[in-house]
Design a protein around this nucleic acid. Structure first.
Lengths: 144, 144
DNA sequence: TATTGTTATACTCTATAACTATA
DNA sequence: TATAGTTATAGAGTATAACAATA
């Protein structure tokens, strides 16, 4: 193993472990609202859209029947509702209820607090670096 | 919303989105080996340990009956085995089989390649920064 | 009695295939 | 015929509660 290999493994491992840490926090915060990661992702997508089921499936990388179940459970809890699609009689549009909107906002605030706590030890310059690097990677991934 | 608020949201959002991106990659690589994230985590823990069930549960943040099921399914696939605990007649020790060890190594190599691809656009200095920041956050989280 | 682990049961999440209704 | 969505069914993952065996 060369020095380069070591750096490589440390970078990959650090990134994966950090991701588990962050999504672990997200999962614990979500559990406080009795929400799963999937439900959180659903609410997040619906904050500024009212997509048809198939588009939800594309964004969540889920099959259509999985989306049916996910939306069923969210609807049963009053977080989202199905509305008819004016342009296509076969389709439905999924949208947040007022309750779902409130839960999404409360969750986001709680999650922000938790991540802020995690970042509390970073110097401002390091925070800025981290933000820049994260968005740089996201843009590259989105473009590819 | 002040400029400070904006930076804060961008940092939190970027970190969460990056974590979804990285674990999404991990999930897709795992799926190529017909492994779930939970099975991957299990194999990862067992690479350098042969813990009792309860310790596995602590590391995975799972209840003991969940661990029983997870180990059952991994054992049925020949990835791990249960061995008696010499020091405690009630306990079992879980360990990788040769097959499980090989799968874990192959998965790690594949995942490293994928993350390397993701990081391909970063300058060496940025890679070093990212590695340093990731480990700094992990150390802080581990200490708290 | 306390602890380790399993079993019984139930719910969420996801997938495939068959089905319904509309385009 | 093709598309949007649901239903039927099955398996993985997780949790709680009751249980067995050992400490």
């Amino acid at each position: 193993m060369t020095a380069g290999d070591h750096d490589e493994a440390a970078t990959v491992d650090g990134l994966v472990q950090l991701s588990f840490l962050v999504l672990g926090e997200l999962g614990r915060v979500a559990a406080g609202y009795e929400l799963s990661l999937s439900q959180i992702r659903l609410l997040g997508i619906l904050r500024d859209r009212r997509p048809p089921m198939l588009e939800l499936g594309r964004r969540l990388e889920l099959g259509k029947s999985s989306v049916t179940g996910l939306v069923d459970r969210a609807e049963a809890r009053g977080l989202v509702r199905r509305a008819p699609d004016d342009a296509d009689g076969r389709g439905v549009r999924v949208e947040l209820t007022e309750s779902g909107c409130g839960v999404a906002a409360a969750f986001t605030a709680a999650m922000t607090t938790r991540v802020e706590h995690l970042l509390a030890g970073l110097e401002p310059a390091d925070r800025a670096q981290l933000t820049r690097l994260a968005w740089q990677l996201l843009e590259r991934a989105g473009a590819s």
